[in-house]
């Protein structure tokens, strides 16, 4: 299973290195949302600064769907996903590989967007370790559910349009926990242990569940 996951992960990285589709789309979109927030709300007040983590994750949740949608769109493009599904490998391994690639793309997007976020919202990072953990666990959470639903949505007539509709409601706990932990890292909230625990539980639950059900998503009619 891990061998398969590694092959799939490397393949997705290679494609991303060559095209930079997922990361650039997600990055540009998240910056756009941050800029739009700035116009829609006056963010440079102390009040708003305390809510900065929320803005960041909202921008990121929407931008992330672009990267996640791309994940299975590229499998559908020339039918390569069919060949992948027919290979004598474990569906769970394919899922883990795609999920790891997506989590990495999301994490990289966040790291690149972070300086802009700090500048736009005039926030200061109080606890760098907590921020890294928040970003990493949050990325895994979004990737865990997003990868599964990207594959589900790719099978419909609506393709990517259905992805946010399916996946955003399910990611509510991850979103809340990510906002709270990032808020803690920025010095705007206390008591993060519950939220870190929730993120870890969420990651474990959805990684496990997805590995188990992924074979049903991959099979053809």
């Amino acid at each position: 299973m891990l061998q398969t996951a590694r092959a799939v992960l490397e393949k997705d990285f290679r494609i991303e290195l060559r095209t930079r589709d997922a990361i650039s789309a997600a990055l540009v979109f998240s910056i756009l949302v941050l800029v739009v927030f700035n116009f829609a709300l006056d963010v440079n007040t102390p009040e708003m600064r305390r809510l900065a983590a929320g803005f960041f994750w909202v921008a990121f949740a929407f931008a992330g769907t672009l990267a996640l949608d791309r994940s299975f769109a590229l499998e559908k493009e020339s039918g390569a996903g069919r060949a992948l599904a027919l290979a004598p490998v474990d569906a769970g391994g394919i899922y883990l590989g795609k999920c790891a690639a997506n989590a990495a793309f999301l994490f990289i997007t966040q790291l690149v967007a972070l300086p802009l976020f700090v500048i736009f919202f005039d926030v200061s990072i109080q606890r760098a370790g907590a921020l890294a953990a928040s970003f990493a666990l949050g990325s895994i959470a979004f990737a865990a559910v997003g990868t599964l639903f990207s594959a589900v949505a790719a099978n419909t007539r609506m393709r990517g349009l259905l992805l946010p509709i399916l996946f955003l409601p399910l990611s509510v706990p991850a979103l809340i926990a990510s906002v709270e932990t990032t808020s803690f890292a920025l010095g705007n909230a206390e008591g993060p242990s519950f939220w870190f625990t929730l993120l870890v539980v969420y990651d474990v639950v959805f990684l496990t569940a997805s590995v188990l059900v992924f074979e049903y998503v991959l099979e053809e009619s």
Binding site: V152, L170, F206, Y216, V217
Partner: peptide, 29 residues
């Protein structure tokens, strides 16, 4: 948005299962 009845049933079941697993997490959050 899924034409084939079998595919529809399978994918809907996947969503029906993961959606419900999410409920306690949403609740605690």
């Amino acid at each position: 948005y899924i034409e084939s009845p079998e595919r529809r049933a399978v994918l809907a079941a996947v969503v029906g299962i993961t959606g419900f697993i999410d409920v306690p997490l949403v609740y605690f959050a």
